[in-house]
Nucleic acid binder design. Structure first.
Lengths: 343, 343
DNA sequence: TGTTAGCACTCGATGTAGGGGAGTGCTAAC
DNA sequence: GTTAGCACTCCCCTACATCGAGTGCTAACA
């Protein structure tokens, strides 16, 4: 059964009211607040229908109604449709330009958390290519060689290798040329055992060093796999009583500190991404079990060519979806500007 | 007034009992538990004295006694004296060797949190010298130069510089020699403006690149100033009701997420360090206000020559000081082994 | 047929009273 | 100096009554 106009209005009114107050809303409240001019009794009948349809539910017999996950879903979907046409116009978030990526991301989540009063997270932009761009060995001191590995997207990894004795300048030069000619432009899958064997052969007595460099290269590419996550405002969850009891709070805080769960969530959001760049997970829709009483809104952003990351906002199911989505769109724009301004 | 032997025994018994149970302890309990063979009435008299002296206090008139900060301080101090002579013998913590420092530290706090059920943190080892060890420029592509800067203690920083056009091999070589001969072994204070001017002059038309590299060097040394902090088990605070109410929990979690407060605390602990390498801050002794209901135990460790960091454990004032201190000493030993095994 | 007023009912929240118990301080006797 | 005894205090738990918001149902109304 489809919702008729009146039911939709009532449902929206229930949800809006609940978003504001966090308390179950009764028929009398709706009767007064909406411009429907219906008595509370009529509203009650409609609400009984809406409950049967699964959009709202009663915490206990003689209480008002609160939205179910299905109800929230309806609300968010209809709101997103409106948003499509709407021009986002909001006060700017105060982002200062930062030279260090790390600082920038840390700042983004901080600003976002302060502005929304929810918990926020961001995954560092990740290059999709992951090809080796440049390798360089340098003698650090008598027993250490520094291996610098640059991956496409200018992700840089350093490794220090212990060696028995100092290598001569020319040996180092030869090894550098050898490594670069063989490895540049290759992705992890393209570095075959055959190629490695060939390189080792050419390296002669220094084949063990080549082996260790290749290990380092493999690690450099792979380490990037587990995304870096920055978070802020995890303690905002205490603002919302429905999330703040010990059990739930502990799980949530754990998830935020552990970060691996967040990583999965953000990655999935990025894959689910449906073009408009905004995703909403309500309650159990989220893959992270500790967030079953939360809603998560995510946005994908792009910083440099092909370097994509995801921002996430975690709050109670009764979060201010409107504001959150606007803020995220705004942020997407700003990060975009930042990218354009860079080149 | 000094505490006589009997008062000391009673005070210790009160504290031990309270550490175990978390409940105020009454005179009857002490009378039964200790080997003093005193009636509860006698104990009561002594406890009244102890309260007057400020070592214990009553939550309310007809309740047992709990230790005051002063009482805890007495307990910890006398325990530390005993520890001096005692050989630490504990089950090993399961630390696997890690090549990445970051992973190692993350693992340390995780293991520590799992073993103690308290919140843990660690500051990355920080070199005190901060001298430039090695600088290298490499051409990345037509418009980018990679500057690798290695600071003493093998802290590595990478910076990418944008340039107008590709430099020739020999120019690059010349610049590298120039930079290294002038900068190696110098600390931030020793890099004078005069020296910079001399270098720029020698660099000729590439003086701007030299300038930017020097900026990068300065940043590399300075960025290390704000220590890196890793934490784990912040949600353990929910295990202790006296820390778990919304207000306190929120502040504590915020401190753990923000990290700057922790940084100050660990830094101070490192400076306060009195030779035995263990520091205990009880309640308001800690410089961090959100920890006024906590105790913090810290230990300084040394990984490589002169690279020192600090580990911290945060729990309720009634934490198991004995176990925590033992665990930390144990960890210190293991990290020491790790260091020795490395060379 | 849809809407509304009226009413009995439900159930959580809040307040109050009372018993139980752990613990104390004081006094008097040993 | 130590101890037994005792009155007293105060928290905690339970039971019980009350209150009020909100419901579902029914009957009357337009």
């Amino acid at each position: 059964m489809e919702l008729d106009e009146r039911k939709r209005k009532i449902l929206q009114a229930v949800i809006r009211n609940y978003l504001e107050t966090g308390e179950p809303v009764g028929s009398r409240t709706i009767s007064k607040y909406t411009d429907l001019n219906l008595s509370s009794a009529t509203i009650r009948n409609e609400m009984a229908d809406l409950e049967e349809l699964g959009y709202i539910l009663q915490p206990h017999t003689s209480a008002g109604r609160i939205p179910s996950d299905k109800g929230y879903r309806f609300y968010v979907d209809s709101m997103l449709e409106d948003k499509e046409r709407e021009v986002v116009e909001m006060k700017e978030l105060l982002l200062e330009r930062q030279d260090k990526m790390e600082r920038l991301l840390q700042q983004v989540v901080k600003v976002l958390a302060d502005n929304t009063n929810y918990a926020t997270m961001i995954s560092a932009p990740k290059p999709q290519g992951n090809k080796v761009k440049f390798v360089q060995l340098s003698q650090l001191d008598d027993h250490q060689i520094l291996a610098v590995i640059v991956v496409e997207g200018n992700v840089i990894r350093n490794n220090i290798l212990e060696v028995e004795e100092r290598l001569s300048e020319e040996t180092l030069l030869k090894l550098n040329i050898l490594l670069n000619t063989h490895l540049n432009g290759l992705s992890l899958n393209e570095i075959s055992l055959g190629r490695i064997a060939a390189m080792k052969q050419q390296a002669g007595i220094h084949s063990d060093i080549v082996g260790r460099v290749i290990d380092a290269v493999a690690q450099a590419i792979q380490v990037e796999e587990d995304l870096q996550i920055y978070t802020s405002g995890a303690n905002n969850i205490f603002r919302y009583p429905e999330l703040a009891d010990h059990q739930k709070a502990s799980e949530l805080i754990g998830t935020f500190e552990e970060k691996s769960g967040l990583s999965d969530l953000l990655q999935e959001a990025q894959e689910d991404e449906n073009g408009r760049g905004i995703q909403v997970y309500i309650g159990s829709e989220s893959p992270v079990s500790s967030m079953r009483d939360c809603s998560v809104v995510t946005a994908t952003y792009e910083l440099e060519e092909g370097m994509r990351g995801t921002i996430g906002i975690v709050g109670p199911k009764r979060m201010d979806y409107d504001k959150v989505i606007n803020t995220l769109k705004n942020l997407q724009n700003q990060l975009d500007e930042l990218y354009k301004g860079k080149r």
